[in-house]
Simulated assay, not measured.
Amino acid sequence: MTSSRSSSSSPICPDLPEQGLTWGARTYVMGVINVTPDSFSDGGRFESPDAALRQARRMIRQGADLLDLGGQSTRPGAAEIDAEEELARVLPALALIRSACSGAGGPRVSIDTFRAPVAAAALAAGAHWINDVSAGRRDPEILSVVAEFGCPYVLMHSRGDSRSMDDLATYNDVVAEVREDLLRATDIALAAGVSAEQLIWDPGLGFAKTTEHNLSLLRGLAVLRQQGFPLLVGPSRKRFIGAVLNQPSPRSRLWGTAAVCALAIEAGADVLRVHDVGPIVQTARMVDGIRGVPGP
């Protein structure tokens, strides 16, 4: 596939000083807050706005740079809700977090959604980023919303939906095909008015990928990073880590997650999306220190 984007290793996305981010300065950590009853590792724990706020404060104390708030579970087999229910879950938690934590140095809040109405309402209510597991495939109107607001947009690789993704995990060369799919999604986003400077790539570990596919993608992260877009990697507590370590409980996969995060940083990851913020912040700072990257 031919693309107009640069293949250099320098980031296309510029620094985001208004959001306290300078790409390449250090590794940033995004804390996951699921305001859902059915997410794979913490469903129901942070479903209420008060519980979400307590978790947000805990993650901020532990060093989170961003918080990723999601009202629709995207685990394999999850039931899909409509936009109204997703907004009913997300907006009260977002309002509470923004009110309590938006002072100087407060974290950026990302909204994990593939729906345009949810993205628009959340951005209007003070969210900073949109994290779309479908890269605009599920609801193309989300691209117009992102273009209008000019916000950072995480463009993640996936196939199908929660019910069908496991049946679509077929690749001849997973690294090359994920790269091509992300380039194609990038072209569509650019055509919809999103600027290259807004885009952040995510290879979508665990989405329509087997254990071996995920391991191959991790070995090939540097290939994706060479395209020039900032790279977000979300390995946290994923099923492939459980398979490698024989750990069936998601909450027992911290050390596997930390190992993946260390490798991802070495391969050029800019943002790590995780549940266990404290240990991963320490992991990132240690790897950054070894690499000669100054801390915060």
Results as ranks from 00 to 15, higher is better:
98 R>I: 04
19 Q>L: 15
269 A>R: 12
199 L>V: 15
173 D>H: 03
154 V>Q: 06
122 A>T: 06
219 R>N: 03
185 A>D: 13
98 R>K: 14
161 D>M: 07
144 S>T: 13
32 V>N: 01
92 P>D: 14
63 G>K: 12
45 R>S: 11
50 D>V: 15
70 G>H: 05
143 L>D: 00
106 G>V: 07
47 E>K: 00
177 E>K: 01
246 N>V: 08
58 R>N: 04
5 R>F: 11
236 S>M: 04
74 T>P: 01
169 A>L: 07
109 V>K: 03
42 D>K: 10
264 A>P: 00
115 R>Q: 12
73 S>L: 01
159 R>S: 02
130 I>E: 06
227 Q>W: 02
154 V>I: 14
277 V>M: 11
60 I>S: 03
177 E>G: 06
86 E>L: 10
112 D>N: 05
248 P>L: 06
81 I>V: 15
97 I>C: 05
48 S>T: 15
278 G>L: 10
132 D>N: 08
162 S>C: 15
134 S>Q: 02
165 M>C: 08
265 I>M: 14
13 C>A: 15
116 A>E: 08
289 G>Y: 13
144 S>V: 00
83 A>L: 09
69 L>E: 04
54 R>N: 11
104 A>F: 04
82 D>L: 03
65 D>C: 06
27 T>L: 02
131 N>K: 07
88 A>F: 00
110 S>P: 04
30 M>C: 05
47 E>I: 14
17 P>C: 12
201 W>Y: 12
164 S>N: 10
122 A>F: 11
209 K>F: 11
241 I>E: 00
206 G>T: 14
188 I>V: 15
126 G>L: 07
107 P>M: 12
109 V>W: 01
244 V>F: 08
75 R>N: 08
29 V>E: 01
48 S>D: 03
228 G>I: 08
52 A>G: 13
115 R>S: 10
102 S>I: 11
213 H>K: 03
182 L>K: 07
36 T>V: 01
55 Q>W: 02
199 L>K: 09
66 L>V: 08
116 A>P: 04
235 P>T: 14
5 R>T: 15
174 V>K: 03
61 R>S: 12
179 R>C: 09
90 V>L: 11
78 A>I: 10
262 A>G: 15
185 A>Y: 05
146 V>I: 12
32 V>L: 04
254 L>A: 10
199 L>G: 05
6 S>P: 01
161 D>W: 07
46 F>Y: 09
266 E>F: 09
241 I>A: 06
